[in-house]
Structure formats: structure tokens, C-alpha cells
């Protein structure tokens, strides 16, 4: 893994188990991370060593994505437990904010083709164990890092 040195900006939507774990890992390997969640209490579970920003709000609203400076993001990772929300935020991130790389959690396996046909990289907790899930994120992240350099 190349050292990233905070040059890459990632917006993570949803501070559930997966979003929280991802944001923490990404920040520890040198990503500049902003984590968005509707519920301020969900940030209380963030570990001591998380170094990054938090934004409280509904990511399906443009204002919240703007507040998170989504337009500057190199990567958007959407991890809520509602697929309609994940899809909507992913598409707005790609088409409106022009974020070049989108990775989304898809909770219901039958929705995967829709995400993929829209050009969204999919991660699915059902079909992937959590280890390989992280692996697929890091792979995506390396592609991003490689693509920007």
C-alpha cells in the first residue's frame, strides 16, 4: 500500500458499523476523511485515534453534501442500511458533484445489478465476509490513489 499522506479526500456516508470501521481505517492509513451521519450519537462510537471530520445531517440533501465539500472528494463511500438512500446518494455524488469514484454498500443482493449498471462499485455484506469487504475497499482505494498520481 502506497503512503497517501492526506492528499486524497474521501467522504463516507453512514456511521453504522461498516461506515465507522471504514472511516477509521482509511484515516489511519492517511486518507483525509469526512464522515456524514444523521444521528450525532453515532459519532460517539468513533475510536480515539480517528483523525477526520464529522458532519451531522441527511446526505440525500444537497446542502449536507456541500457542507462535507463533496465536490472536492476523490472517493465517495456510501454505507447506510437503506439501498434507495445508498443509490440516490451515489448517483447525486457522481452526477451532480462529479466525484470520480463511488463505492456503495448494497444491502439487498437483488439490487446489485442496478448499482453496477449505473457505474457504482458495489460492496455487499451478504456475499462478502467483512475481511474481503475491506479488501475490496482498499483495492478500490489503491485504484483511486494510482489514478490521481
Amino acid at each position: 500500500m502506497t503512503r497517501i499522506n492526506y492528499q486524497f479526500y474521501v467522504v463516507v456516508v453512514g456511521c453504522g458499523k461498516i461506515g465507522l470501521e471504514l472511516a477509521t481505517r482509511l484515516s489511519s492509513i492517511g486518507f483525509n476523511v469526512t464522515l456524514i451521519d444523521k444521528n450525532p450519537e453515532s459519532f460517539e462510537k468513533l475510536p480515539e485515534d480517528y483523525g477526520g471530520f464529522t458532519v451531522i445531517g441527511d446526505a440525500t440533501e444537497r446542502e449536507i453534501l456541500e457542507r462535507a465539500k463533496a465536490g472536492k472528494a476523490d472517493l465517495l463511500i456510501v454505507t447506510t442500511e437503506d439501498d434507495a438512500t445508498n443509490y440516490f446518494v451515489s448517483v447525486v455524488g457522481a452526477k451532480i458533484f462529479g466525484i470520480p469514484n463511488i463505492i456503495s454498500l448494497v444491502n439487498n443482493r437483488e439490487n446489485i445489478p442496478l448499482f453496477e449498471r449505473t457505474g457504482i462499485k458495489v460492496i455487499s455484506p451478504v456475499s462478502l465476509a467483512i475481511e474481503s469487504f475491506e479488501h475490496s475497499i482498499l483495492e478500490g482505494v489503491e485504484q483511486v490513489a494510482g489514478g490521481i498520481k
Partner: peptide, 16 residues
Amino acid sequence: DERHVRTLLIKMISNL
């Protein structure tokens, strides 16, 4: 007073 931001700032500034 936000620990996460403090951590990030220290990392970024010492990096830069």
C-alpha cells in the same frame, strides 16, 4: 475541542 479534528490537524501539519 474536537479530538478527531485535532488529531487530523496534527497529522497534516507535521506531514506538511
